[in-house]
Design a protein around this nucleic acid. Structure first.
Lengths: 228, 228
DNA sequence: AAAAGGTATTATGAATTCAAAATTCTCACA
DNA sequence: TGTGAGAATTTTGAATTCATAATACCTTTT
């Protein structure tokens, strides 16, 4: 692990800690040793502690007065709440996108949609998810609402480290693709209300939450994390 | 200005700075002098700087590398974006509330609604707004989604310091009350979809943004703030 | 008088130091 | 062997110090 560049130190440190959390190198519940992290990054406690404050207000770590910091332990409830929020934000992004998006960008999304369909028909799961993600990202960008984008990526970051088995049953998958067909249609018509509605109800989120049930230790109790 | 209590210093400092910003004692664009604030609060630079980091990730101040901090200067676009987001979050709160709320709490909201109607009929603007706010807050609480509540209050904080004249024309006001009638009806029926829809479209937000046009210096340019 | 260049001052970024709280360890005693 | 009081150690919270970047000031030159 290479030493950190000395520019905007606290921000770099925050980025690195985010990575550690996302990749499961820092486990939830586990106490974060300032000293240890300082040595790993080769920085003093000042920027490290500043980074922890930021991460705390991002909801990634929690600070216990006089007792240091720890990675937030997600519960099923918290993940559900987060996905509900992300759904609402995606809905808004759809509404706004219809007002703001350019014809060229609609065209680009249609192309991606075709690609996605192709992956669907060939049953190529990973590329399907990749293109799927890009479509959602492009709609989010098209909303031209930066605060929305920031909030969405913050929420996304919070739940990134949860690994669940995406049990893509055939009927689920068909439904998802159908949703996307409707999305593209709504986008072409620039029907914001409709696109928003579809995105809010898009089963992608619901599916993910549903599949969580299998990975959960116990309702209201901490969740199992990915170990990498 | 009394000295600060020495417990969770950075948090206290952040609270105090939030107040200063909200009340217009720290003006947008103006550089925040660390030294000055340290003296006012009677703390060292360490907790102050930690507080600034937090406020920065809350979107209240911006940090310029090697050039200190300043209060974020809101533009009309930023305020619009924020209100769009708040609308979406209120919509979600409505959907969730219908699933989670207790009959007693519905009853309580109905009472508040009656109060609000009474203020409306007597044309008591300030009490009307007060009760109105309480109703929205209670629906937000009823969603039982803490992250949603946090995000909403963060967004709310960002635009709090903008003072605009609420030009409550008669037709606007009547429409708002009608919206509330529909909201209460949807809540009683526990029709989440409907309540969400109403809240998203509720003209309260739109109205507020609309009235901003009068207070704005220039599109895309910084906004005039309240001076207190 | 205005502009340019260079020095002095100030403010910020980060490391270090100091104080206080929490944790661990030791050892007496049941 | 287990338990608890108290000392020693570690860790955190906050102030201070040090280094560097930005700003202000002052001189010099045209």
């Amino acid at each position: 692990m290479s030493k950190i560049q000395h520019r905007n130190l606290y921000r770099e440190v925050a980025d690195r800690i985010r990575d550690l959390i996302e990749h499961g190198d820092l486990l939830p519940g586990e106490r974060i040793s300032e000293k240890h992290l300082c040595e790993t990054f080769g920085v003093s406690r000042t920027p490290l502690r500043e980074a922890l404050k930021v991460l705390s207000s991002e909801g990634l770590v929690e600070l216990l007065p006089n007792r240091g910091a720890r990675v937030v332990q997600l519960t099923l409830k918290m993940v559900k709440d987060t996905y509900d929020l992300m759904g609402a934000l995606e809905g808004l992004s759809g509404e706004l996108a219809c007002q703001e998006i350019s014809d060229a960008e609609i065209e680009r999304i249609c192309e991606l949609h075709e690609q996605m369909l192709s992956h669907y028909h060939k049953r190529e799961l990973t590329p399907y998810f990749e293109v799927n993600k890009q479509i959602h990202e492009r709609i989010l960008m098209a909303s031209k609402n930066e605060i929305l984008q920031e909030m969405y990526s913050n929420l996304s970051q919070r739940v990134k480290r949860v690994r669940y088995s995406k049990k893509m049953t055939d009927s689920f998958w068909r439904q998802a693709v159908e949703d996307h067909e409707n999305m593209v249609a709504a986008l072409k018509k620039r029907d914001g209300k409709l696109l928003g509605q579809i995105l809010r109800d898009h089963l992608c989120n619901k599916l993910e939450v549903a599949s969580l049930s299998g990975v959960i230790e116990d309702e209201g109790k901490p969740m199992r994390m990915a170990s990498s």
